Simulated assay, not measured.
Amino acid sequence: MAPRRAAARAAARRRILRGWLFSLPALIAYCGFVIYPLILGIQYSFYKWNGVGPSEWVGLANYIRVFTDETLLASIGNAFVLIAFFTIIPVASGLVLATLIRSMKPGPFSSLSQTILFLPQIIPLAAAGIAWSWMYAQTGAVNQLLNAVGLGFLARPWLGDFQTALPAVGLIGSWVLTGLCTVLFLTGIGKIDQSLYEAVRLDGASWWREFVTITIPGLRQEIAVLVTITIIAALSSFDIIYTTTLGGPGRATLVPGISIYRIGFTQSDVGLASAFGIVLMVIVLACVLPIQRLARANDR
Rank of each mutant, 00 (worst) to 15 (best):
49 W>D: 05
43 Q>K: 14
76 I>Q: 05
107 G>H: 01
56 E>T: 13
61 A>Q: 15
100 L>R: 09
41 G>S: 14
45 S>P: 02
71 T>K: 12
96 V>D: 01
75 S>C: 01
103 S>W: 09
108 P>Q: 13
77 G>S: 08
56 E>G: 09
47 Y>I: 06
101 I>Y: 02
49 W>H: 08
44 Y>V: 10
81 V>D: 01
74 A>S: 15
98 A>P: 00
52 V>P: 07
49 W>P: 05
99 T>H: 11
76 I>L: 14
77 G>M: 06
64 I>T: 13
57 W>D: 07
69 D>P: 03
103 S>N: 09
36 Y>L: 15
58 V>N: 00
68 T>C: 04
86 F>V: 01
40 L>Y: 12
90 P>F: 01
42 I>T: 10
92 A>Y: 06
93 S>I: 08
82 L>S: 01
54 P>Y: 10
96 V>Y: 02
58 V>D: 00
72 L>Q: 05
53 G>T: 12
84 A>G: 11
52 V>M: 14
108 P>R: 15
104 M>W: 13
38 L>N: 07
70 E>S: 12
69 D>G: 03
51 G>E: 02
71 T>Q: 12
86 F>D: 04
100 L>W: 07
47 Y>G: 06
97 L>D: 00
95 L>M: 13
43 Q>D: 15
80 F>K: 03
107 G>F: 00
39 I>K: 09
35 I>W: 10
94 G>D: 00
104 M>N: 02
78 N>E: 02
77 G>Q: 09
41 G>F: 06
67 F>Q: 05
